[in-house]
Each structure stands twice: as structure tokens, then as C-alpha cells.
Design a protein around this nucleic acid. Sequence first.
RNA 1: GCAGGUGUAGUUUAAUGGUAGAACUCCAGCCUUCCAAGCUGAUAACGUGGGUCCGAUUCCCAUCACCUGCUCCA
Length: 456
Amino acid sequence: MDKEISMEQMTNFCKNYGFIFQGSEIYGGLANTWDYGPLGSRLKNNIKDAWRKRFIQQRNNAYEIDADILMHPKVWEASGHVASFSDPLIDCKECKMRHRADNLINDFTSSSIADSMTKEEMINYIKENNIKCPNCNKSNFTDIREFNLMFQTYRGVTNDNKNVVYLRPENAQGEYVNFLNVQRSMRCKLPFSIGQIGKAFRNEITPGNFTFRTIEFEQMEYQTFCKKGEDMELYEYFKEYGKKFFIDLGIKEEDLRFHDHEKLAHYASAACDIEYKFPFGWGEINGTHNRTDFDLSAHQKYSSISQTYLDPDTNEKYIPYIIESTYGLDRTVLAILFSAYHVEKLENDEREVLKLHPFLSPYKVAVLPLVKKYHSEKAKEIYKKLSNCFMCSYDETASIGKRYRRADVIGTPFCITIDNETLNSNTVTLRFRDTMEQIVLNVDEVASYVEDKIKF
RNA sequence: GCAGGUGUAGUUUAAUGGUAGAACUCCAGCCUUCCAAGCUGAUAACGUGGGUCCGAUUCCCAUCACCUGCUCCA
């Protein structure tokens, strides 16, 4: 961006132009929920399509699925989320600092004995050993409260514990439990990939930065199943492939960086984020993980269904390794908005312009009659025709200059004006958003001209 | 979850213990033949709930939401 824009200004921008609205706004809002408006959902869907093109269409042996949000509860036991997503939290009554009880004990003893303790055992241990708050050095804690990051609900009409189901906290398990289904039905050989776009839910209390951290969020996930030994090469490959994807979407390379993890999640042997430089600092927009054979092994154990692959080349049977590359869709939308937002100084004026990749733009062409009473009939005719090919907008109010600006600020790459020449010789003036250059085209050439320019 | 800040039309804001004025935007009309022109008109706001008070947008309390910084998570 040429001009710094704060998170607050971006929030207002998104509201003003119909990209993103606060969730349940008329009721005062619900924390960390945001609704995509007409332009925001177009942008988001275009990003999904761009991802599909790069990750499914243009790659060999890659398949998209659409798994259910609700899955068998055992899935989350196998994945480790039931255990590791419920942290035993404890608050210091003196300084109000919140801690994890198991960490307090483990740090105190320099061991991992708390990992096998129950809640009561942990409370007692802290009391007996007079473990102090690391912040204020006093020992006056609340009870332990377990806070599970997974949203729980119940199937059936009774709130019986046996009927607990979870909203998925990640999409990945949908791909893993369908590994064999996809492999058989698509006759896949390793390595192959399963991608999925969908919503996931995490019941986090932590505040978000606009849509950066929300309780409901959408991911574009890509799981590549491979032979052990080929995993690290693929891992490195997908890190770079992901970065290139973001650059192709229009994010500047200097606003991106890799962040290798030292502390790893329970399922991963290697993890690296791609981060974007947001106003609040660097924030993760992609995560690439080497999940090894952890997930499929766990599902084999919990389901008693073999998750092995018979390698036709070597006749070996083994559980594949998985390289996961996850894209936070809402975060990608936000990063792209920040990247695209510009304020340009003109001679006596300035313009706000969203320099989106044309493929991502909500509208591809704005159709503008030069003078409403002379040209609007013809313009509507052309608008109707072009709308068969791509999203168009139509604007006949206020001056032509103002209408150009309206198109600029929402990222429409092309404007065509309908004037007397259109009526006489069937030509229109086509104007580029980025350079404000104009060319004259025959009406019948517009669609194919634009189609060519909006490719991803 | 902690600390601080903010909350008045879509946006930016003004004033006020006696229910609010503007600019921009948007809409309608006039004008206008290529980059936010002009004129006329219209719509539109005190986050929510309590309390004090004859009366609260204003003072107090609570709550909700957002922003900033921590913390946490990945």
C-alpha cells in the first residue's frame, strides 16, 4: 500500500463498500464474527477459484472433496484434539494472570509429570507444593477449569454425553478419513493430494484483529499423501509453492516471510508458516506441516481399519506420510485487501484504488453510459450481454469521473463507456483501472478482450 | 483473560443536563459528451440495559462491541 491504512480504517473501508460487515451488527455484534457482504463474498469466492486452479486443476493427481463439518467423535480422539485442545486453565487470584496448570507443575518440577495427572491431582499438587504464580510470586489460585477449544453440540434431542458431536476444529480429518475412498475411487498412486475448502470452528476467547482471528473460519487445505522418505522434499516444495501462490494473487514478496516452528504441534515433525505483514505485525496466512504417518496411524488404531497403501512398484505395504499445507481463507482475503489498497495522488486530487488481480475483482467490467439520457438504453443492452460472460456492474448516476472512481475503489479492472460513437459505429471506450489508459474497441470484441485479461 | 482507549447518520465529526448541527457518501431531479464539477430536494445518528434527576446523548453503574498493547493459540 502506498499509504498506511490501519486495521480500523480497513474495517470501515470493508463496511463502507460492502466487503465485510460486523456479525449480528444490529444486536450490538457478536465478538469475532464477521459477515462477508456482496463484494467480499465475490472476492472470497474468486480466491477459492484461484486456489482450485493452482492446487487441483493445474496439478496432477489432485482431488477436491467436500467433507461434513460434523464427524464421528472418535475422529477427534484419534486426532488428539480431544486431549490436546482442552487445556486445564487456572487463574491467579492476585494478579489475574491465567496459566495452564500442567505447565505450572511441569515447570516447577522440570518434568512432565503433570501430563498424566487428573484435574484434582493437579490442584492438590499445586497446593501441597505451594507453587507460586510466575507473574506475582504468590500462591492463590482458582480451581482448574477445562476449556475445550472445540465447539460441542449434541445430536438427537437429549443432551446425553454419548451423543456429543463436535464442530470440526480443522478440516484435515475429513481428508484423512477419506484417504482410502479417494485413493480407490480415483485409482490414485502415491503421491497424490486431497484438497478441501471449508469452515472450521475454534472456541477461543482470544481477541481477533478484524477477520484475522475468528471463532468460525474457512480454510483451503491441501493434503499430499506420500511415501516416507519423500516427505521432506514435498514439504519444502509446498512451502515455496504456497509463497508463489500468494505472489500470484498480488501480494508483494517483501510483505511475506517464512516462519519455521521450533515448538511443534502434537501431530507434526516439521512446521513452517507463511506470514504476511499486517498492520499489527506478521501474521500467519499459511501453514505447512509434515504430519508424518501420525494421523493415518491413529485412525488405523482407533477404527481398526487398515490405512495402508500397497505400493505397486515395490509391493510394499505402508502407511503414507502426509504433507499438509493449509491456507487461512479469511486471512488471505484480508492480506489481499491490504496489499491491493492504494491511495494515489493525482494532479489536484487523489483516488482510492483497489489494485486487485483482475481474476479476484468482484466486478470485471463497469458499464457506464456517458450521458444517461442519450446512452443508457444502449448501455443496458451491452451490460446484459456482457453479464453472460462475467460479473459486471452498471452505473449511470453522477458524472463520468465519479463513476470511474466508484469502480476504482472496489477494484473493478475495466470500465467501458457508451457514447455517441457506440450508437453510430458500435465502438466503446475501455479504460484500465491501474493506468487509466483508454482504448477503443468494437462492442463485440469486449468480452473476449476482457476474458483474456482476467485469467489467473 | 489482563491493561488502556473508543462508542453521535454509511463514513468523518460538532454541540448540549431540556432528545442533536455539519461535511462527504448515497438517493431523486435539473445540468453535464470521458476522470470525485454545479444547483435543488430527500433519507439518515446519540451501542444496549439500569441508576440519579422534573428531565440523561451528556453524570454514575453494568453490559456489549471495536481498536491498541500484553497473554494465549497456531
